[in-house]
Every structure is written in C-alpha cells, then in structure tokens.
Design a protein around this nucleic acid. Structure first.
Length: 158
DNA sequence: GCCAACGTTGGC
DNA sequence: GCCAACGTTGGC
C-alpha cells in the first residue's frame, strides 16, 4: 500500500463535500507528473491525506482512500467543464483520475504552518517552497505522524 | 491582490 | 532541442 497527499481547493471540493458524497472521482488533474502518479502507482486501498489548498489556512483536513484505480477523466472532453482540454478524447484519453472514498475528517485542521514545525516531517514535499504538485507520494511514517497529530493539541508557535 | 516558483507553449 | 514568453498555482 502507498500513501499520498492530494490537494484540493475547498471552495471547489472539500473534505466535507467528500464526507457527504462518501465517494467521488478526483477529476480535474491537469499535470502530467500528478497524472502519472495516479495512473502508474495508485492502487485501490491506498490512503490519501486530503489537503486544502488556497484556503485560510491551508492544511491537511482528513483522510480518503482510493476506491477505484485510474481511469479516463471525462471532464477533459466536456466543453462546459473548467477542466476541458481538447488534447483528450474518449478514444485517446490524456487525463486520468482515481475515485476516492471518505475515511475521516480530522478533529482539527493540521495547517501547513504546523507541518513546517516538526523535524520529523523534514523533507515531505508539501512543505517545500514552490511545491505545486497536486498529487504527492508520501512515506507511511510521515502519513502516520500527521494522522497522530490530528489527535493532539496544536504546538504553540514560538 | 501580489508575486515567486514552476510548467507549458511555440518560434526558431 | 533551446529557451523566452506566457499561464497557473498557491502561499502570503
């Protein structure tokens, strides 16, 4: 099993949206590196940290699980979709998505600011400056550490 | 709203 | 294949 972090803007799709739907396609990924991770390395059962980007504050909001392996993203050939991309057609899909299911919403948001405070998390992609990749592989130990943080009080900022 | 960092595009 | 221009992401 692999562990991941995936970013979504909560104004568009949040952990609460996933909780109410229980299952949803992770559509709209339009970056080759992110697509390749989903297509080549994501397996049903993989766990995903659900990260809220472009939020106040940004941070990890909960956990999802991959419930369907990568398949074509049909929003790419929907002209009305904000994710429309004429490069992709039903015959030759360019963009892929996985489906995810809700696992848990954290009792508190683990903010990006907080993630940066732990030496145990040094090196994780999401804290790197300029890191825009929306699908990031992550070590199980880091995944578990962040998940444990969710049950802990926040560190006081020095 | 700003802008740094990054990815993509397209002329050559 | 290079790289400048452009567009996007996303924290602040």
């Amino acid at each position: 099993m692999n562990t991941w972090l995936m970013k979504s803007e909560p104004d568009v799709f949040s952990i609460d949206d996933l909780e109410s739907k229980q299952q949803a396609p992770w559509d709209g990924v339009r970056n080759y590196q992110a697509r390749n991770f989903m297509r080549d390395h994501m397996k049903v059962g993989d766990l995903v940290l659900f990260y809220h980007s472009n939020a106040t504050p940004p941070g990890v909001a909960g956990v999802a699980r991959v419930c369907r392996q990568a398949h074509a993203d049909p929003t790419a050939w929907d002209k009305k979709s904000p994710y429309y991309d004429p490069k992709s057609t039903p015959a030759k899909p360019v963009w892929m998505m996985v489906d995810v299911e809700f696992v848990e919403k954290f009792p508190r948001l683990i903010s990006l600011d907080e993630l940066k405070q732990y030496p145990q998390l040094e090196g994780i992609m999401v804290v790197k400056r300029g890191m825009r990749l929306s699908v990031q592989p992550m070590k199980k130990e880091h995944f578990d550490f962040i998940r444990r943080l969710a049950g802990k009080p926040a560190l006081s900022t020095p």
